[in-house]
Design a binder for these strands. Sequence first.
RNA 1: GUCCCCAUCGUCUAGCCCGGUUAGGACACCACCCUUUCACGGUGAGAACCGGGGUUCGAAUCCCCGUGGGGACGCCA
Length: 445
Amino acid sequence: MSPVRVRFAPSPTGFFHIGSARTALFNWLYARHTGGTFVLRIEDTDKERNSDEFLQVIYDSLRWLGLNWDEGPLVGGGFGPYRQSERADIYRAYLDKLSDAGRTYEREGATFFRISGKPQIIDDAIRGRVERTEEKDFVIIRSDGNPVFHFVNVVDDIAMKITHVIRGEDHLSNTSKHTELFQAFGAPMPVYAHIPLILKQHGPGKMSKRDQGALIEEYQRRGFQPEALVNFLCLLGWSPKNDQEKMPIEEIIRLFDLPAVHQGNARFDEKKMAHMNMAYLHAMTPDQYYAVAAKYLGGTGFLALHRPEEEYLRSVLALCQVKVRSLEELPAAIGYFFTEDFPYDAKSAEKIRSKGDPCARLQEFLDALTSADFSSDASLETWLQGLAASKGMSTSDYIHPGRFAFSGGSAGPTFYGVLRVIGPERAGRRIRRFLGIMGPSLSAQ
RNA sequence: GUCCCCAUCGUCUAGCCCGGUUAGGACACCACCCUUUCACGGUGAGAACCGGGGUUCGAAUCCCCGUGGGGACGCCA
């Protein structure tokens, strides 16, 4: 059997859709699984709707997802050019073959293809036998001289020696047009594999451009991990059948195969996507996490605003990695580490007040602070236990007001971790701020 | 309307091809544990074979018919 050649053939007419991403992914996986070639071809025959800006979106999205192409724009290959707008000569030559065989005619300035009208039967690698009969001749060259999708798609698949056409089910009904053309050219038919569609998570129909989570650039912007998105996407319509979900890409490549792809459509689920993303974030080493988190924070303007020292930022991120579910939550979750002007949460304040005398505890805490050992969370814990014991209090009598004074809220990483990272200077300053603001209002009641 | 495809927990799915399972896993939800908090993590609970006919000793699994869902019917791709 000849080596596998698959292609992803997007049209630069819009943003990069999650369904397109999965089609690209399945093609890429099949190429990598079989040791074949993954071709990128740009179907830009519709001049009205194409733009270089969209072209760039395709390149960026594929690269971000890690779906490198072996042949195509920017990388070249033996079957170029890889943009249909540059292949007019090839289409002319193939059109002549059809015309010479008497399979074309003109009407109203457009060139029509004369179908055979015979039942078209394909043995789809995913669907099995599918039969459909094409009933009408169809346009292959528009009256403005530009070739139509069905024509260029088939011509290029022939010219580029594509062996497997892996595409969305929305093309299944078009396939009879395509097989008619393959036969008219006397070309061998590729193996077809029609993958299920991704349905929108709420409401009827397939996922459309306007749906939440439909665009790859959205995930990019929101700081999702591309590996997590790829992992999630391959589980939409395919399964390794062994209950594995989070898998390294090498494992996915090893296990992926066409017959295991489902026939039914799959509904998108942002919660499961978010969970996968979290799993990848939590599995990172502190260095890896720092790299992606710092990059994300840079993009949001957080870094420009607070200008943190690298070592301090590193400590904060190491402390918060397991506490935060996505990079998006980061700015809100770690803001108080970098400013003295963080707000006090009213509800948390109420809770603190109701539980005891936070000002008295924090005054004691402040007085004892110079004797605290900041070398580790454990040494701080020992120190606080000593303080609590000497005052006849429990550590939580200090922890809750302390957390509030340090962060303005009641949730966050371990208290001793926060104390260690912010250090004695900030800790003292924040307690004095708390006493200054909250002391008078408390005694007034 | 015509044609094509599909059908297991709310969702993603395993099991189906080669009939015999307490129908398994994950997300979500709920409870408990862990914990100074919030998460994470752990344990547990609830939750499905679309309906009807066949075939068979026996059907989620094979066949047919309904129903439901999806897609295609452009001088878009």
